[in-house]
Each structure stands twice: as structure tokens, then as C-alpha cells.
């Protein structure tokens, strides 16, 4: 019972998550000859949610609207849902860690803040050709130099942005 509780109810130690996530790389190749990656699937979502059917890139790259990438995205959402159900933390929350706790902004400004962050993530991952899963985990696990380089710049961008946000909006606290 202790084992079941550790797997399904308690938070995991970092290495347990690392092992499961790392195993996805060879497993997805073995079963589907496909690289681990999430951000490319956002192009499918553009086709689903926005009027973009006439854009050449969407037309050629996303011929099948509801491809496996959409199912992967839905699966990740369900995984998060399952995790909060089993740990007993289910419920909608407007908290976002220390940001909402310290900045104390009205909800609409918080929404704009995270929306802007999302635009940079979406635009940046397409220009860079991948995200944390495709480049940083899949690419580096395959020793791809391009992925190592791009990941270095992911991290530089993250350090710059997080420290600016911390001094401007979080009063340097934390």
C-alpha cells in the first residue's frame, strides 16, 4: 500500500519524474518512430481555434487537423487532472505561486502578464524549432549540437526574464 501511495498520492522525488519523462524518448521511437515533442502541436490548435486555414505553413504542415499531436496535448491535460484528483487537490485556483501572492495584481493584469509570456513561448518555440521537450530532452538525449545550443539560449532567456520580473514586480523578495 505504501508503494501505491507513493506513486499515486504523494509528490514524486525529482529522479522518479526524470526517469518517467526520459523513458518517453526511446518508447515513442520504439512504438511510433516519432520524436518526443509538444510545441509543434500548437499549430494544430491554431488551425482548430483561429481562422488560419489559408496560411501556407498551416496548410502544408498541418494537413491533418486532429493528428496524434492533439491527442498528446489532451493526454497531458488529463495527466495533470488525474494527478490533482488522486492527490486530493482538485479545484480551480487563481493562484500562481509567489507571483500572485507577492505582486497582488488585479486578475485582468495577471491574465495579460501570463498571456504575454505565452505569446513569447509560442513564437519562440516555432522559430527555435522546438521546446523544452523536443530540444532540451529529446534533442540533448540524442546528443544533437543544435539542441544543446538552443537550450543554452532558452536558459539565458529564462534567467533574464525571471530576474527582471523579480526586481520589477516582486520587489526583489524571494
Amino acid at each position: 500500500m505504501f508503494i501505491l501511495r507513493s506513486i499515486f498520492v504523494e509528490p514524486w522525488p525529482f529522479w522518479a519524474g526524470g526517469i518517467v519523462i526520459g523513458l518517453l524518448v526511446p518508447l515513442l521511437y520504439y512504438y511510433f518512430n516519432t520524436a518526443l515533442g509538444v510545441s509543434t502541436g500548437y499549430g494544430n490548435l491554431v488551425k482548430i481555434f483561429l481562422p488560419a486555414k489559408n496560411l501556407q505553413w498551416i496548410k502544408t504542415k498541418y494537413a491533418e487537423t486532429f493528428s496524434w499531436r492533439v491527442y498528446f496535448i489532451i493526454g497531458i491535460i488529463l495527466g495533470g487532472l488525474l494527478s490533482s484528483i488522486l492527490s486530493g487537490n482538485l479545484g480551480i485556483t487563481t493562484e500562481m505561486g509567489r507571483f500572485t501572492a507577492i505582486a497582488g495584481w488585479p486578475g485582468i493584469l495577471n491574465a495579460v502578464f501570463f498571456f504575454v509570456g505565452g505569446i513569447l513561448l509560442g513564437l519562440g518555440s516555432r522559430i527555435a524549432g522546438g521546446c523544452t521537450s523536443g530540444h532540451s530532452i529529446h534533442g540533448i538525449a540524442n546528443l544533437h549540437i543544435s539542441s544543446i545550443l538552443v537550450t543554452i539560449f532558452f536558459i539565458i532567456g529564462g534567467i533574464v526574464a525571471a530576474n527582471i520580473v523579480r526586481s520589477l514586480f516582486l520587489g526583489g523578495a524571494w
Binding site: 513561448l121 532567456g157 533574464v160 526574464a161
Partner: peptide, 8 residues
Amino acid sequence: IFGLGWGI
């Protein structure tokens, strides 16, 4: 650009 979005 991605990194900035990650940190924000």
C-alpha cells in the same frame, strides 16, 4: 524569445 516566455 522562448526563454523570456519561460521565465515570465
